[in-house]
Amino acid sequence: MKSILIVLFVAVSSLTTFGQDTSTMNGTYEGYINGAYVFSDNEGNTAEFNDITDDVANEFDLNSQKFVGKQFTITFIVDSELDEDDEEIQVSTIVELLMPM
């Protein structure tokens, strides 16, 4: 699991435009899979987000199938946390979602 998170963090980092404390990417929503919000880019790379803010969750019910296959601009933050083995892991949180018009 740790290896997957590291690989995903590196993949997401390479797809982002870095701002102050947030990063942004464009992606297609694949669904809520194994406890993560999964998006893919136009090159087939996937990014998993562990959490979502209440504001975004109130606007977009990503636990339903309603938004699967829809395009989004995802703004997110990445924090470091300790897992149950006291190893540092990266946790990504969606802080804003926009649907292109």
Rank of each mutant, 00 (worst) to 15 (best):
M1Y: 10
K2L: 11
I4C: 00
I4K: 14
I6Q: 10
V7R: 14
L8F: 13
V10Q: 14
A11R: 13
V12T: 15
S13Q: 13
S13E: 12
S13R: 11
L15H: 06
L15Q: 14
L15C: 10
L15P: 01
F18I: 06
F18K: 11
Q20S: 13
D21I: 02
T22P: 00
N26L: 07
N26Y: 11
Y29I: 05
G31H: 00
Y32G: 01
N34Y: 08
Y37H: 06
V38H: 04
F39Q: 06
D41E: 01
N42W: 03
E43G: 08
G44T: 03
T46H: 05
T46V: 04
A47Y: 04
E48H: 11
F49K: 03
F49T: 06
N50W: 03
D51F: 08
I52M: 07
I52D: 00
N58G: 08
N58K: 12
N58Y: 08
F60W: 00
D61S: 12
L62N: 02
N63D: 12
N63M: 09
S64M: 05
S64E: 06
Q65N: 15
Q65R: 11
Q65Y: 09
F67N: 11
F67M: 04
K70C: 13
K70H: 14
I74F: 07
F76Y: 15
S80A: 11
S80H: 08
S80M: 11
E81H: 06
D86G: 00
E87K: 15
E88M: 11
E88K: 10
V91W: 01
I94H: 04
I94G: 04
V95F: 07
V95N: 03
P100R: 09
P100L: 08
M101W: 10
